[in-house]
């Protein structure tokens, strides 16, 4: 097994998960559990493809994907934040809606290929200087620009979350919205902003699949990756840096089966396919045993904030 090419494939497989997971972490950090990831990813994937196909402009394609994810998230945000509807049900509905939307819009694109200049824009390119580093360069810096963008997102959002006033505020909104409200933070505005950010990132995660990974439109291109990302948020204990390790770990488990088959190991493929979920359960168990304050879900998650009830 060629280890470097495998690890490079792992980064690729983990990237759509990474976008969606980091987006969902921010949504959950402000207290909104959005189970609509799969739907938003598909909306982003199909919209990115359709825009890329129609305009032959890679930047518009990416913006279209982000916007589509945000529109999905906006519907969710309006129902759960403004109307204070049930978050789980709304998220599930968003998944069903997004899947249908992608089939509907995508039906006229099945088997079509993106224009050359779009695929070239998202093809693997060597990152200047950094790609020269032995091993690391081959694994991390000979990838699509979208992969580089995912690194940038993680660093930027990680700093935002842990090192800035805004990060402190958004964590407060998720932990104790009443206290945040009392200290003059607009709870709704924070919630809307980060739920929409989550939608945009899911949309881009989906678009990574349709623009960079398989630039020929296919029905249901995400095939459940949105659900894996939901599990990954827990696995990463709501920490965007750990999400990187988690996304590559889950992405790696997704593809390692195909590399191991060569060695005829006596492990059924089903066991390997189960590993991501087993790992998630283990993390949940460990978290509840350790009960550390950092490693737990935002306290207000899943509950709408009623100012009158505080």
């Amino acid at each position: 097994m060629n280890v470097i090419s495998f690890l490079s494939a792992v980064v690729q497989a983990g990237t759509p998960l990474l976008f969606a997971t980091v987006g969902e972490i921010f949504s959950q950090k402000v207290g909104n559990l959005n189970l609509g990831l799969e739907g938003m990813m598909l909306m982003g994937a199909v919209t990115g493809f359709a825009v890329g196909y129609g305009s032959a402009n890679p930047i518009l394609a990416l913006l279209g994907a982000a916007l589509a994810g945000m529109i999905g998230a906006l519907v969710y945000a309006f129902i759960t934040i403004t109307l204070k509807g049930n978050q789980e049900v709304t998220g599930l509905t968003l998944t069903i809606f997004g899947t249908g939307y992608a089939s509907f819009v995508g039906s006229s694109y099945v088997g079509y290929k993106l224009p050359e200049n779009v695929t070239e824009a998202f093809a693997k390119v060597s990152f200047p200087v950094l790609s020269e580093i032995p091993v690391i360069g081959d694994i991390f810096f000979k990838q699509s620009v979208l992969v580089y963008f995912s690194y940038a997102c993680v660093v930027f959002l990680g700093i935002l979350l842990y090192k800035t006033k805004y990060g402190l505020n958004l964590r407060m909104v998720g932990e104790n919205p009443a206290a945040a409200d009392a200290s003059g933070i607009s709870v709704s505005r924070y919630k809307y902003f980060y739920v929409l950010l989550g939608g945009a990132m899911s949309g881009i995660g989906g678009a990574f699949l349709s623009l960079a990974y398989i630039p020929v439109w296919q029905e249901n291109i995400t095939a459940g990756k949105g659900w894996i990302a939901v599990a990954l948020v827990i696995f990463a204990v709501w920490n965007p840096y750990r999400a990187v390790a988690g996304a590559y770990f889950f992405g790696g488990l997704d593809i390692i089966g195909f590399r191991l088959q060569k060695f005829s190991l006596p492990i059924p493929i089903y066991i390997i396919n189960m590993l991501p979920y087993v790992a998630t359960i283990l993390v949940l168990v460990l978290m509840s045993i350790r009960k550390s304050k950092e490693n737990k879900a935002p306290s207000s998650i899943g509950r709408a904030y009623f100012r009158e009830e505080r």
Partner: peptide
């Protein structure tokens, strides 16, 4: 073996393993 009739990402990952 991919154990699916239809999952573009898995199919591609399997093909990439073989091409490597």
């Amino acid at each position: 073996w991919t154990n699916t009739w239809y999952d573009p990402a898995s199919e591609k990952a399997a093909a990439e393993a073989l091409l490597d």
